[in-house]
Design a protein around this nucleic acid. Structure first.
Length: 479
RNA sequence: GCCCCCAUCGUCUAGAGGCCUAGGACACCUCCCUUUCACGGAGAAAACGGGGAUUCGAAUUCCCCUGGGGGUACCA
């Protein structure tokens, strides 16, 4: 079996998670069967397509590790091919020119609606006489090209995910427009359903893997394959990604583009892993945490679910933190440095590398998203320390103030070590007869402005290395 | 309206007639670890939409209902 699959995004927006997930399934399937994964940009909608969206799509797919073997191909550069096929259908009498105005079609639809009938084209221009045609043309009317759909046809296919699906020709809405309006002797711009088929034929696509929202297009496309004398590919319609209310996830639901997730601090491995899990489940020995390469060795449509999957931030977050925790300190630091720089923190990325890695190690277990590193690092990297309310309250307790004074008086000039810090805390506790918890809490409030955070002693050591601990302890006395 | 698809814990899912007193994961809750937070570990709670039919036996097959979703363009 020669597998050739494609992802065909349209550059009318940034790479959407739904498109990306379809890309994942196509990629997985191609890799599983040693096939070819093709990228085709469907930019036939000249009005809405924009080059920056194309770039965003390319970048997003690359970031996710969904490398393509052929392409990107651009439909806007293939119009000659479409024109030829359109002419072919016209010549074979399988398509015809129709001259209705948009207003006339609208009238037809509204009268059907009023009679509780399904809106459909009534094929009224299917068999125009030459006289009628020239009369319309004399009026200066433009015409579209319609592909003839036999109402009596029954179209069936065996869907890779859903099994047998059947449609009646009469439910397809009448002869379908395949080329937009143009002057009577020209051929207008081709429409989606037609272009997809022409390209999939030209590119020898063996399996069309796409979202469930395309099921209704499939019978029309099958008819076009037949009309063009081509072999009909296998179809597999994957479930949709749903929002929390259970409807198809759309831009209106907030964060949906891959580049947004990237900006929010999600790593590509976690995203790819999570998207795979939305509709596909790995077979037994595998756990839910896997790379695309792992998944590719086991991917099959048998394990693709048929019902839609709600997008779940909790699970994505869990996976992302898992991936983050798995990274080495070196890798994590590399990822965090640009984020810290972006946040406006001042440090020397080379000279202070070792210190930054210590900071990374200290914070790493608390990271869910990379961008969490901004808040977590604030007490260590921000110029001015901010105290939250409970920290202020803590610093106003007389006993706490005394313990701080004691620590200040005993703080050595030499760089602090873990042992020294531990001993110092122990000393305060004994000398002043305080609870260890109180001393620790007060120290934390003074050093970080917060009552919660990573290991206090480690934090102290880091601040000591930057020589800000004494300053902060003294400053805390004035609160 | 019409057509199509779907239906297991809150969520993602396993389950292809007896292995199911329905398994896993996330989230939630409890406990342990711990100065705190997080991480980590242990545990609890939680589902087959309803009704028929087939069968010795149904979450698994069939039908109906209900519910949800998708589509219905001179968008993709």
């Amino acid at each position: 079996m020669t597998v050739r699959v494609r992802i065909a995004p349209s550059p009318t927006g940034n790479l959407h998670i739904g498109t990306a997930r379809t890309a994942v399934f196509n990629w997985l399937f191609a890799r599983r069967y040693g096939g070819t994964f093709i990228l085709r940009i469907e930019d036939t909608d000249l009005e809405r397509s924009r080059p920056e969206f194309t770039q965003n799509i390319l970048d997003g797919l690359s970031w996710l590790g969904l490398n393509w073997d052929e392409g990107p191909f651009f439909q806007s550069q293939r119009s000659e091919l479409y024109r030829q096929y359109l002419q072919l259908l016209l010549d074979k009498g399988l398509a015809y020119r129709a001259y209705e105005t948009p207003a006339e079609l609208e009238e037809l639809r509204s009268s059907q609606k009023a009679n509780h009938q399904a809106p459909r084209y009534d094929n009224r221009h299917r068999s125009l006489t030459p006289e009628q045609r020239s009369a319309y043309e004399a009026e200066g009317r433009q015409c579209v090209i319609r592909f003839i759909i036999d109402d009596l046809r029954e179209i069936t296919w065996n869907d890779g995910v859903r099994g047998q699906i059947a449609w009646k020709g009469q439910d397809l809405g009448g002869d379908m427009v395949i080329a937009r309006a143009a002057p009577a002797n020209e051929i207008g711009l081709p429409l989606y359903n037609f272009v997809v088929v022409v390209d999939d034929i030209a590119m020898n696509i063996s399996h069309v893997i796409r979202g469930e929202d395309h099921i209704g297009n499939t019978p029309k496309q099958i008819l076009l394959y037949e009309a063009l004398g081509a072999i009909v590919p296998q179809f597999a319609h994957t479930p949709l990604i749903l929002n929390s209310s259970g409807a198809k996830l759309s831009k209106r639901d907030g964060v949906t583009s891959i580049s947004d997730f990237q900006l929010m601090g999600y790593v590509s491995g976690a995203m790819a892993n999570y998207m795979s899990l939305l509709g596909w489940s790995p077979p037994e020995p595998m756990t839910e945490q896997f790379s695309l390469a792992d998944a590719a060795t086991h991917f099959s449509f048998d394990r693709v679910n048929r019902s839609g999957a709600k997008f779940d931030w909790d699970k994505l977050n869990w996976l992302n933190s898992h991936y983050l925790h798995k990274l080495s300190i070196t890798q994590l630091t590399d990822l965090l440095i640009p984020i810290w720089e972006e946040a406006g923190y001042e440090f020397h990325r080379v000279n202070e590398r070792q210190w930054l890695e210590q900071l990374t190690a200290l914070l790493s277990s608390s990271l869910v998203r990379l961008t969490d590193g901004v808040d977590l690092a604030r007490p260590f990297l921000a110029k001015e320390l901010e105290y939250n309310e409970s920290a202020v309250a803590q610093l106003r307790q007389p006993q706490g103030i005394n313990s701080l004074k004691y620590v200040i008086s005993q703080l050595p000039d030499a760089p602090l070590t873990l042992e020294m810090a531990q001993a110092l805390i122990q000393q305060v506790v004994q000398v002043q007869g305080l609870k260890k918890g109180l001393v620790m809490k007060t120290m934390r409030a003074a050093l970080t402005g917060e009552l919660q955070g990573p290991d206090l002693l480690e934090s102290w050591l880091l601040l000591n290395q930057r020589k800000v601990d004494l300053k902060r302890l003294e400053q805390a006395l004035m609160i």
